[in-house]
Design a protein around this nucleic acid. Sequence first.
RNA 1: GUGGGCGUAGCUCAGCUGGUAGAGCUCCUGGUUGUGGUCCAGGCGGUCGUGGGUUCGAGUCCCAUCGCUCACCCCA
Length: 419
Amino acid sequence: MAPRAPKGTRDVLPAEGRVRAGVEAVSAEVMATHGFGRVVTPTFEETEVFVRGVGTATDIVRKEMYTFEDRGGRSITLRPEGTAPVARAYVEHGMHKLPQPVKLWYMAPMFRYEAPQSGRFREHWQVGAEAFGSDDPLLDAEMIALLAEIYARLDVPDVRLRISSMGDPDGRTAYREMLLAHLAPRADSLPRDARERMDENPLRLFDMKDDAVRTAMADAPLLLDNLGDAAREHHQRVLEALRLMGIPYEEDPSLVRGLDYYTRTVFEFTCDRLGAQSGIGGGGRYDGLVESLGGPAVPGVGFGTGVERITLALGDAAAGAPVVDAYLAAPEADIRMALMPVLRDLRRSGVRVEAGPAGKSLKAMMRHASSLGARHVIIVGPREHAEGLATIRDMTTGDQVEVPVGEVHVHVAAPGVDA
RNA sequence: GUGGGCGUAGCUCAGCUGGUAGAGCUCCUGGUUGUGGUCCAGGCGGUCGUGGGUUCGAGUCCCAUCGCUCACCCCA
């Protein structure tokens, strides 16, 4: 059997590659206008980065990491998420001494050992941004606005924003007791995995789709109604800023992000075109993360958005055809050889030009040029070659002109390209 | 990890109650001498996921196995 791409991985072919290039370009533009600098962290980290950063109660750390021992006996893990590594780099390079906040972004692959399904892979790419060193709620709002702007510029359809607050750690501990007290008399009606989850993180029960769980949670006290004063004030400021910027949101008390590090603001963008995995991007504030990685007590806020989910939401229509300005058709091998410098010069001057392989008939080349969508075909047969000419055919009008070979670039140049 | 669906040419699929493999698209070559997109003709291309079994005979039935896919869980 011929080898295949490993389970949960995929090959991105040129049509989709063009869409991804657009995602990256738009992200880079929007990040720049918001003052974010690009970082590239290693594809793998010491396992400790994720154990301490993401938290041992999370599914990511408990059962989804690609962890192995390298030949030097170190425990290594393929990056399952982007925030912890960037926080690690922030600490490692003493970035807390730079003017705060420090704003960083990335586009990088993530690896999680999960059962693949629509929109979920074992390797996926995320565009993410992290801002360290400020607890200003307006920074949270800016992060959300930044992500919304990326979706808007890409024309991602049917995007909705849900937002909530996880409160502060002490407040969350108190709320947790309140929630457990609510659940205790109902525990018998819950399925086993729900009861197990009660011990680890009862908040997660809000995410479950099981009917028994839903009825038990229907009248449960909400974290959002039990925030401490500071967290509540923070949350209101975030919402006010969103309103001022005209960013629609739905406050959703049941929104619980599955990473332990979140504090206060949490948000998620969903897209209805995505099927069961409707989340297209999300993030929140993580005021304890840097400290848990051995750094100073520095607050932070960030998000990640899935590149595959964006391209999935955009659909096939987003994959435009490749652009070819000109097609060089020279059936005779010797002539084709003689035109190599011409081909080079055309490309050097910015013309996107394909050349038919010698040995094919002119008819075959015309067909090829047509299927590539070439705007012009440069025909050089024995007659033209003897006189130093080239025939240029406009493929949309069918008009043909003969010009000196040296002037071909003037006639086939792409709009906006100075010849 | 659990459950549903599916595995036939590069792609999308057809093959009814078992008789020894097809279509469309793509690609290639032609339709007279150097010209595309339409049309016409021809051609390339498949150990019918894999391994067993039943049968005179299996793509079609049975068993196993692998893979893909969707959903749960979780997340981007």
